[in-house]
Design a protein around this nucleic acid. Structure first.
Length: 166
RNA sequence: UGGAGGAGGCGGGUGUCCGCUGUUCGUCAAUGCGAAUAGAGGAAAGUCCGGACUCCAGACAGGCUGCAUGCCGGGUAACGCCCGGCCGCGGUAACGCGAGGGAAAGUGCCACAGAGAGUAGACCGCCUUCGUCUUUGGGCGGAGGUAAGGGUGAAAGGGUGCGGUAAGAGCGCACCGCUUCGCCGGUGACGGUGGAGGCACGGUAAACCCCAUGCGGAGCAAGGCCAAAUAGGGAAACCGAGGGUCGCCUGUCCUCGCCUUUCGUUUUUGGCGGGAGAGGUUUCCGGGUCGGCUGCUCGAGCCCGCCGGUAACGGCGGGCCAAGAUGAAUGGACGCCGCCCUUCGGGGUACAGGAUCCGGCUUAUAGCCUCCUUCAACCG
């Protein structure tokens, strides 16, 4: 988290601007993740964490199976989410696309879009600290971005609710 | 200009924001941060052939079995691939297609129809002759000769024509086909040509089979190296009890043998030493799981030029370094442009993503471009 301080303020401002525009562009429903600009310090933290390195990905088969077995499950229109409290502090992402989804090209595109969902909406997971496994369902490669993002964020909301109840 | 055929190429462009993986450099405690730079295809696909590479087995090599290939010559590391040619078939042509060896080594199969289907055969016919009847046209019956015509069939034991004959027939002749023997051309497949034979030899080998040639097996999850935890194996050193009763202390009981006043890991009533049993701790060794590293990208490499070759391709010279990921990067979002369709709102923009690497084949592919050839029409 140290590197966040290194980013110049100018760049931060630019990011904030684009993010804000984007947020308005697909603010067609309550599911879109909204935040206001006046929460200064918190906003800064949310805006800067946009990277997705290898550490933040599930890399072992055992991790996947553990998440399937012990995690919470939420089924959406295009995605199926599994989440399980992580041993590490941060969130990690794993993506599974079976051959039912389509050809190799289609599956790769789905993976990339989901990775971007995870990366650009990291604030939706802030404070959770879970291993998240996403199963791809059919149609994920061609659905418009706002709809897919809505599906993803709605899934996360339900996951949060399930966690709170527990 | 239009139709057709062949060869080859491209297969989106661009802007903004946010990212990913490798390498190099800088910085640093750091796998972090910053900068620069590179980063999917013509099929990356199917995994159908051929190799390189690695391990295993064996070792001159050969055979059996199995599989594959199959006109000729050339190319290649090799091939079932490519190039050139031959033959057959299709097309007016350009050109295309062909598993294209052997059916006189053997076995099998060829339904139905038909008189007869492989040592042929005679249903209707045709012809001769005898008998008989007669309204003199011929009819009926017997004996024989035939295979031209009809009919069946996918196929009827060479074809067409002329001669010949009672009618016919390779019975004879010419041409074509076939078989066979020469000669000429060609490296060869084969082509051309001359003679002889009077015709025997149906098809099917993606039916068994025969002949010739080739092939040891498994694959980068190959293979090599490092190596946590736990359990277990081996070795060494050190420590000294263990169990029951119990919250704790004291006391007591049980558990090996020998010896008897010195020694000490402990096990005694007290003491000693040998044997035996048992536990704990630490260290090392070997095997080795999770995991990590390597193999891993400079190669039958790519580009340009010249030379040889009809070509595939080869030779020489010069230049270049161009993915190396591993739950797997090379992107996501939003615009603009191009192209196509449009009901003028808009919609669409192919097939498709490396996984050790090469050479091929096959299959998928919206649309676009270039060149050559051929046919038809028109103009000159």
């Amino acid at each position: 988290m140290n590197h966040e301080k290194n980013i110049p303020a100018k760049q931060q401002a630019a990011q904030e601007k684009t993010r804000f525009q984007g947020s308005h562009a697909f603010s067609d429903g309550a599911e879109s993740f909204e935040f206001s600009a006046e929460e200064g310090a918190q906003t800064r933290q949310r805006l800067t964490n946009r990277r997705l390195t290898r550490k933040q990905r599930l890399q072992r088969r055992a991790d996947f199976q553990l998440t399937y077995r012990e995690g919470e499950r939420v089924i959406g229109r295009y995605l199926v989410l599994f989440a399980r409290p992580s041993v590490l502090g941060c969130c990690r992402l794993g993506i599974t696309a079976s051959r039912k989804v389509g050809s190799a090209v289609v599956r790769t595109r789905c993976r990339r879009r989901i990775r971007e969902l995870f990366r650009l909406n990291s604030e939706a997971l802030s404070g959770l600290g879970v291993d998240l496994v996403v199963n791809v369902r059919r149609g994920c490669e061609s659905v418009p971005w706002p709809e897919l993002q809505g599906d993803y964020l709605a899934g996360l909301k339900r996951l949060r609710r399930a966690a709170r109840i527990e």
